[in-house]
Structure formats: C-alpha cells, structure tokens
C-alpha cells in the first residue's frame, strides 16, 4: 500500500480545496493517521473508498476521543538585562490549547487486503452542539457506531439517517464517556435517614415542613396552648 504522504497528495489533488494533515503516532505501534477537514470529509472518504488503488471498502472501527483543554508549557532562554548585566534567563510561556472531540475511523480494504488507514475528524470545541459530518452514507458500518459516539460523547453527525441514543436510555441527558462527566448522586431512599445520609437526602427532596410536623414547634404555638 502507498504511504500516507502519497495518499494525502493524491486526495488533495483529486478533491480541490481539501486539507489533510498527517498526525504522527510516536509509540511503537507506528500507526499514524490522517486528519481530514470537516468540510470535505465526505468527499475525501468517498475518494478513499472508490479509488482503484486504495479501495478502502471496509470501515472496521469508529470511535470517539475526548481531548480536554490543556496547557502546553514552553521554556525558552531569553537574554535580559538584570542589574545592568545581560543574563540568560529561562522564560516559560504557557499556550492554551482548547479541547476538542475527535472521531476516529479505522479503514481496511477487503478487495486488496491492506490497511489500516486511520482517518480522524475534529470538532471545533467541546460544546454541547459539537458537529461533524456523518460518514454513514459512505460506510454503513458507521451507522451504529456513530450513534454510539453521539450517545457517549455528544458529537452530532450531520447527514446520519437515524441519530438517536443507542446504549443509554432516551431521556438521559449527559454524555458519560466525556472526561469531565460527573456521575449523578445515586441517592437511595432510606426510611430513617440520619447524619450524612440525611444531609444527602435534603439535597434530593424539597423541604415539606407541614408533613414533618414542623409548624407545631414554632414559637407561636405556645400561645395557642395557653389560651
């Protein structure tokens, strides 16, 4: 199979305006991937599937990855004048890299029996309405897997025929595979709540003083008894 550079060059010439970056993979597995731009993603995917030399007709694995906001620290030596002398001082600059959600597709060719070519798409941010184009029209195997990404990561796939939750129930609100997901407080009702259980119980139920008999212990109640 051709190298990723060749695939990138050929795809960029075949689809005008397409932008592809190669994402290196430093580990021993040596599986670098292609980062394709969202606007031309369906066209690039179609090229990868239909090109006679590639024929990546089998989309094996589709998955999401959540990358949180992170800070990259860079230390640069800078010459500075300190007390009239020129000295080399280490200066640390912090660069904020905004987080994003990623969808990763592992492609193989059943016709030519080669692979894997890994493509990935990135959303602009991690907001609730993060969007990516769906590749289900190209590879049907992405149908359930993109639904799963939508369910667990909250990426909305434009052009997906049936984008619903798949593993969590329909009324569920959050996306549990996100790195900043907070588990709900699994409070169970206890007949005689006490101490810390009582404190947790109070967060779950609105106060109901009438039912609990609170009004009879107020200051005014003593006067009524005297009368």
């Amino acid at each position: 199979m051709e190298s990723l550079e060749q695939i990138k060059d050929r795809a960029e010439t075949a689809i005008p305006g397409a932008k592809i970056d190669i994402v290196p993979n430093p580990g021993p597995a040596n599986q670098p991937s292609l980062l394709i731009d969202n606007e031309h993603a369906p066209a690039i995917a179609k090229f990868l599937r239909d090109d006679a030399a590639l024929r990546l007709d089998f989309c094996s694995n589709v998955t999401g990855v959540d990358w949180l906001d992170r800070v990259a620290k860079k230390t640069v030596k800078v010459k500075k004048v300190v007390d009239g002398e020129e000295k080399e001082v280490n200066q640390t600059t912090e660069e904020k890299i905004p987080g994003y959600l990623e969808a990763v597709y592992h492609l193989y060719s059943i016709t030519h029996k080669h692979g894997a070519v890994i493509i990935r798409m990135r959303t602009e941010d991690r907001a609730a309405g993060a969007r990516l184009p769906s590749l289900t029209p190209i590879w049907r195997s992405a149908e359930f897997q993109e639904r799963e990404i939508y369910d667990l990561y909250g990426i909305r796939f434009d052009g997906h025929p049936d984008l619903r939750r798949i593993l969590m129930w329909d009324e569920f609100e959050d996306h549990p595979m996100r790195k900043d997901y907070v588990q709900p407080d699994d409070f169970e009702w206890e007949p005689t709540p006490h101490d810390d259980v009582l404190a947790r119980a109070k967060q779950h139920y609105t106060p109901r003083p009438e039912l609990d008999g609170a009004e009879k212990i107020t200051a005014g109640s003593g006067d009524t008894l005297k009368r």
Binding site: A29, Q31, I118
Partner: peptide, 22 residues
Amino acid sequence: PPVGEAYGRIEAPKGELGFYLI
C-alpha cells in the same frame, strides 16, 4: 506504555474483535 495509540484486532469466533488504545 509509551505515549501513542494502537489498534489491534483478531478473528474472534463472532467476527473481528478489536481494541483501540490511546
């Protein structure tokens, strides 16, 4: 393991079973 990602797959009795790790 060192920083990186890997996708490994085998022919399980039910089909292609893969694990994708970062």
